[in-house]
Design a protein around this nucleic acid. Sequence first.
DNA 1: GCGACAG
DNA 2: ATCTTGTCGC
Length: 222
Amino acid sequence: MINTQQLRQEQTEKAQQIILTDQFTAPTYIAGADVGFEDGGAVTRAAIVIMHYPSFDILEYQIARIPTTLPYIPGLLSFRECPALMAAWQLIKQKPSLIFVDGQGIAHPRRLGVASHFGLLVDTPTIGVAKSRLCGIDKSVNEEMGSKEPLMDKNEQIGWIYRSKKKCKPLYISPGHKVSMEGTLQWVELCMKGYRLPEPTRWADGIASNRRLFEQLNKNKL
DNA sequence: GCGACAG
DNA sequence: ATCTTGTCGC
């Protein structure tokens, strides 16, 4: 039996520890982290990719597989994915100075999305890059690439709605841990290379999805 | 009470 | 998230 009440309470308390200031200098190594599932959801697979900035050369990537412990419950995603992310993190040899996590940062009902939660666990700056909205007012964004609107919730900014590419659904980015609201937008912009997703997230996404396409692309890039 | 709801 | 080929649109 899952005590969701208790988990929500735990998030509320941990959220108090999230730092929203840039506690790092220009990163040399940036990581992308994402999670996928196998066996109909029975196995959770986490992938972390380490890239050099600004060349975006892939230095290392690790994949961890562990049994899935919780079902997907909106708002409690971090409890489902962090165990696998931690497993992948322990396999990584080159620790990054900034991590792009697939999912929300503080743009969360209790201000502790998976990006914030994971950043807190590994004590590393993180940015949440989500492909859809969890909470906050879904304002429409200008069609032009690079356009953005503050993502507001309860009268405060919790992130940005960012048009990373024309004719594509906008991204919902938010500070995870130790990154400011401005730094969040800045780093995402610096990591864009013409695709909807910033490089770290794009590669972590491809590897976590286990696409042979990416496995092939890896050969060319490594 | 009703609708919304990261991956 | 995942099951999955071709296909319509820019």
